[in-house]
Design a protein around this nucleic acid. Structure first.
Lengths: 221, 221
DNA sequence: TAGATTGTTAATCGATTAACAATC
DNA sequence: TAGATTGTTAATCGATTAACAATC
């Protein structure tokens, strides 16, 4: 029996081998690029990005190289091409419909988050158990009873689920989502979800950043 | 002129040299440990943690070793000691008072987040500009006019600020906070803040996790 | 005792940074 | 042309994993 190295696995699954660390940097790049574009800039140099984003210029070069966009010496990279390429890379060009479960404050915050409009995800419906929330409309997004999720997800072919429910309900909700055909879950509840391997789960973990903050602060006091 | 290696810098600033990657793992460990404690367990082995948290057992051993808690062969580590040590490490044992600016959904979500109670941060007051929000009370936390922040922060010696305002207002708010004596800022607005170096800024960046999710999903479709 | 588990040292892997030639 | 900037290759750094002796 041959051991599968992660890289071979990746090939087999037709997954690209780009590292998460790089992926996590792209939204910051994108943000900066859009800003520059708004300012009327046409090109940007890696050195300039490096200064503003506090990332080593070589790293920026490598990250940008992955997008396939070529730069021109003394000029830099074309901003539009970069924006386009990164959006393409992240699959943020055409947004996919998503369901959100848990119409509490966190859920509504996310629904109202204007920044999400540029990110390839569109929340089209929210669900909740609380009869007081069912029937509401939040920023144009209706809140339905969670019982309706299964049918609706199947009918609309929803592939992305967002969990903004309390931790205690998260696992159950996640299973319902998978059951209904969801293949990627963005989890804001502070729990690890146990799901079949093939389901993509990303945990929006606010504690990890708090841990860094707290520790640094402790050092300072 | 001698170049300062990061490590020397760290010593000079009296900062500990523990890596952020380790720090970011601790909250997950803590969560698991508390869970086990609730189940009535007294000890836990690194192998067990490894299985549940999907982290290599050697890594867990190293991370736990940093806390100073010793394990016993065939038994494992005492859960209480670990919880205690990690909380100590993160400075989560006695919570510091914090101000939150921006009482929109994100702000209220954070105020209502029960999980925050175990994390060394206590939001005692919220601020907003919106007259409709001023005077409200959210989960026992009063919302004041942002004009009052400066005086109140000075008076109560607040060192931690949380920004849950829109991106457009974040920089200005951050500067007000620093002006008022805040030395650590937890920023939920989707903007990089430009502040004096000595201010600790942690960006709770939801886009980075979305980037990973989107990319993985693109691969799968 | 035997075996589960710890904890440390060494090997590997991957990410970041440095150096530098190529180019507009 | 000179110099800013690109993009690539090599060196370094740090994090993860493997191997294994020590211990209860």
């Amino acid at each position: 029996m041959t051991k599968k190295k992660p890289s071979e696995q990746a090939k087999m699954n037709n997954e690209s081998k780009i590292s998460n660390l790089v992926l996590r940097r792209y939204p910051r790049y994108l943000h900066f690029l859009r800003e520059q574009k708004l300012k009327g800039e046409e090109n940007v140099s890696a050195s300039e990005m490096s200064r503003h984003l506090n990332v080593h210029h070589t790293q920026i070069r490598k990250d940008l190289a992955l997008t396939g966009v070529k730069g021109v010496p003394k000029v830099g990279h074309n901003i539009d091409s970069l924006i386009d390429a990164i959006e393409e890379f992240l699959n943020w060009k055409n947004s996919s419909d998503a369901f959100l479960v848990g119409a509490g404050h966190m859920g509504r915050a996310l629904i109202g988050y204007r920044g999400l409009q540029n990110t390839g995800i569109k929340i089209i419906t929210a669900f909740d158990r609380d009869p007081e929330k069912i029937g509401l409309e939040v920023d144009g997004v209706p809140v339905y009873s969670i019982d309706k999720m299964h049918n609706l997800a199947k009918r609309l072919h929803i592939r992305i689920g967002i969990i903004t429910a309390p931790a205690s309900a998260a696992q159950e909700i996640a299973e319902m989502m998978v059951e209904a055909g969801v293949i990627a879950i963005w989890n804001f509840a502070p729990t690890r979800l146990e799901l079949p391997e093939e389901v993509i789960v990303e945990h929006a973990d606010i504690y990890s950043s708090l841990a860094v903050l707290s520790h640094k602060l402790a050092d300072k006091l």
